[in-house]
């Protein structure tokens, strides 16, 4: 199975985009060889700005460039983008609805050995709650490539959440990504799994295994967390059981976004696969995903539990 990290796909896409649109500029905070903006830096040294280890200055500078008609992509690790520079993003970028694209890499537990200080498990929540912000969590390399182009076409702030770890390729070039539109990867009527990021592949594996147990499960790639594809959520809910899966805290992320829709429009038994209100720790990515309950087996178990005892589990 071919695997490519979404940060790698991001770095390559930026170079393509840079050739197409001279307004595109890229900023980084001393992590260009990890966020992969280094490819753009090599191709367009005059349109690349390394701000040093200074994430707040990174976001402020991106705001200024956007105010003068540029399309800045600002990159650093997700913890520092969403955490250290939160006010710069909230007040400096989103409030005036500036055309800044925040491409944050190293989201989630799969950062691995660097440990909790570097594992963003709350960034989707933090970004989703800000008005004007669009939040995208691509599932694989091709979706990332298209999301980069879509973000550049979109007028307004975008938060792109990318990963460190190479992840399985799901999509070919024929796939068409659109901001705000979920993609149904597998049909089914017994239950639905709504996933994002590297959990999409886990969801597909869980659905295959559930198939052999006699359950037909709908699998939705909810790559845009905001604006959420309400129709897709309702369609998933019509199966009668919805499991969400994200490499993120269960508080405030994809699961919460889905629950917000369903609680108000179509109350449906739900389970959320994600990190349960705790910090991560050092370890190999796969070990951490196991320990914190983020594998296809955990999704499968959640679906079965929901099917057997939908309420008051």
């Amino acid at each position: 199975m071919q695997k490519i990290a979404t940060r790698e796909a991001y770095g390559r896409a930026l170079v393509q985009l840079g050739h197409q649109d001279p307004r595109v500029v890229v900023l980084d905070a001393d992590l260009s060889r990890s966020t992969m903006t280094v490819y753009f830096a090599r191709e367009f040294p005059h349109r690349f700005f390394n701000m040093g280890v200074a994430e707040q200055s990174l976001m402020g500078t991106a705001a200024g460039l956007a105010l003068c008609g540029k399309i800045p992509f600002a990159s650093t690790f997700a913890v520092f983008a969403s955490g250290r520079a939160y006010d710069q993003i909230r007040n400096g970028i989103a409030y005036p609805a500036l055309n800044v694209k925040i491409a944050a890499t190293h989201g989630g537990l799969s950062v691995g050995e660097d440990g909790a200080s570097h594992q963003a498990l709350e960034d989707i929540t933090l970004m989703r709650v800000i008005p004007n912000m669009t939040v995208i969590v691509p599932a694989d390399a091709e979706e990332t490539r298209q999301a980069v182009f879509a973000a550049a076409r979109h007028e307004g702030p975008v938060y792109l959440r990318l990963g460190r770890l190479p992840v399985p390729v799901i999509y070919e070039e024929e796939y068409v990504f659109q901001i705000g539109r979920a993609h149904i990867l597998r049909e089914g009527e017994d239950a639905a799994i709504i996933a994002c990021g590297l959990m999409v592949h886990e969801a597909l594996r869980a659905a295959e295994e559930l198939d052999s147990l006699g359950f037909k499960v709908l699998v939705v790639n909810m790559s845009t967390i905001k604006p959420l594809d309400r129709e897709a959520v309702l369609r998933a809910a019509r199966t009668g059981a919805v499991v969400t899966a994200e490499e993120h805290s269960v508080i405030g992320g994809l699961g919460s976004a889905v629950a917000e829709v369903l609680a108000q429009e179509l109350p449906t038994p739900m389970a959320m696969v994600g990190v349960k209100d705790t910090f991560g720790e050092s370890g190999k990515p796969q070990e951490l995903l196991e320990k914190y309950g983020l594998t296809h087996r955990h999704i499968l178990q959640a679906v079965l539990t929901l099917k057997r005892a939908p309420l008051g589990r």
Partner: peptide, 8 residues
């Protein structure tokens, strides 16, 4: 995994 000697 599980070590008190975290990456940071």
């Amino acid at each position: 995994l599980g070590s008190p000697l975290q990456g940071h």
